[in-house]
Design a binder for these strands. Sequence first.
DNA 1: GCCGTTTTCGGCCCGACTGTTTTCAGTCG
Length: 571
Amino acid sequence: MVNTQIADLFEEIASLLELHGESNPFRVRAYRRAALTLKNLTESVSDIAERGELDDIPGIGKDLAGKIREYLKSGRITLREDLKRNTPDFMLRMLEIPGMGPKTARTIHERFKPGGYPELKKLARSGALRELPGIREKTERHILEGIEITERKHSRVSIGEALPLARSLVAGLSRLDAVDRADAAGSLRRMRETIGDVDILVASSSPQAVMDAFVKMDGVWKVLAHGHARSSVVMREGMQVDLRVVEKECYGAALLYFTGSKDHSIRLRGLAKKKGYKINEYGLFEIRSGKRIASAEKDIYEALGLAYIPPELREDRGEIEAAARKRLPRLVELKDLKGDLHAHTDWTDGVDSIRAMAEAAQKMGLEYLAVTDHSRSLHIAGGLSSERLSEHSAAVRELNKTMPGIRLLAGAEVDVLEDGSLDYPSDLLEKLDFVVASIHSGFRQGKARLTERLVRAMRSGRVDLIGHPTGRLFGERNAYELDFDLVFKTAAETRTALEINGCPERLDLDDLRIREAVRAGVTLAVSSDAHSKSHFNNLEYGVGTARRGWCEKDDILNCLPLKELLKKNRP
DNA sequence: GCCGTTTTCGGCCCGACTGTTTTCAGTCG
């Protein structure tokens, strides 16, 4: 996507400017901010450029608009080419080392011009770097450790990995006598689909004791920083965890600050300043008197004239304006889900029986579960033949007689074949209670044909829900391109729901597309796509993503009680 | 480089930790 390409170039320009000693930090920030804005855009900048509306984008002025146009026209940005020509590749890569910023990278490069990590390591080991100003033995050691961390650390991990780790750390910390309260903050609390660092906040009146225990916790590999208010460690799996300890009185303000996002915080602080206040992690203060006005999250928002903004919305994507007008959505919650409409069993590629899955769903407090095993063409997953599907439905219905408290729906996840037809005959689908249709093959067909497949499936009149609509798989496969205007329009017209697949490797649709879909009047469904009992946890990730997409309860099909679901589905 | 109920100049969020420093610079979130 062209937006991402330009965003990456803007980020690169920002780093290059710093390396070249750019004296105006705000110029650098302007590029970084613009990069983030572009990544958050759902519309392609080339469309916006065609309408001549580039400088309507916040943070994009005359100059940056010009650079975007230059890229769209020529595929290059002259400033970036010029800077790049005068910057060795490794100088830029040195910035990836934690603790290594532009000033240090530049100093080292000017004197030694190392061409890669091996050379830099040799310099640090030999003690050669310490002849530079500001660098002594400890800095050398930190550079060596930083390189080691860079080599070990994988980039962002899915929330499915990060959340359980964070919860076990929070539980461990909560057991300490010195700890009054502990929470995961940062991008985890905002339920971002991927997590860079895990941020944990603790309230305690004996911070040093908490910190000392933290850096010695199980699984800690390296200690990056160990202070009395803040510490950072790297876990054996390579994930960085930052811990911040504050007094109980500041907990809300610290939670606000530590949850971010950075851009949301910056906006809040700007607002505060205009009102004569100052926000830091200890509270909201009146500048004139130095008095603390508020410290709970809610109270701080209120003092700024804003409604309370749930963490999932704190991305500076219009939530501050909406909060000022008291027009924030009432976000869907996990407890609003009445059922799950997409799950697999040991009839195909799931590991648990229909009964075991039903019991697990019931334990989650669900009223209904659609059992949607794979269709015949998906051989790799042991897709059911037409005959087997009939037996499957019969087994599901038989079980309903013996299991009070949960209603099982006989369903299928039917493949949308390469020509857009469905993988079971129409009369067979007609007999099912619930039909999920998904694309599992032919991902490379291109935007027009993939869109046409989904449109045809929706127009078949046999499909209730489109499963994982963009096919993305975290770390494996990017979302395929679709004509979303057409997909959303068709979904709304045919009253076909689109899935928010809660599997953490999918989270498909993603937050931005969900928001677009809601605006287009599309109904969504949060599904677990569970392949085992434990996967019903996925619903939590799905709801988190739905909330990031500004979904209310009424936008979600499986928030309907069973009766209404059946009525709506088969009128 | 952007932006404007402090509007075309002069601002731009704020604090912790570390190391190399005697009062601060660099980096990070």
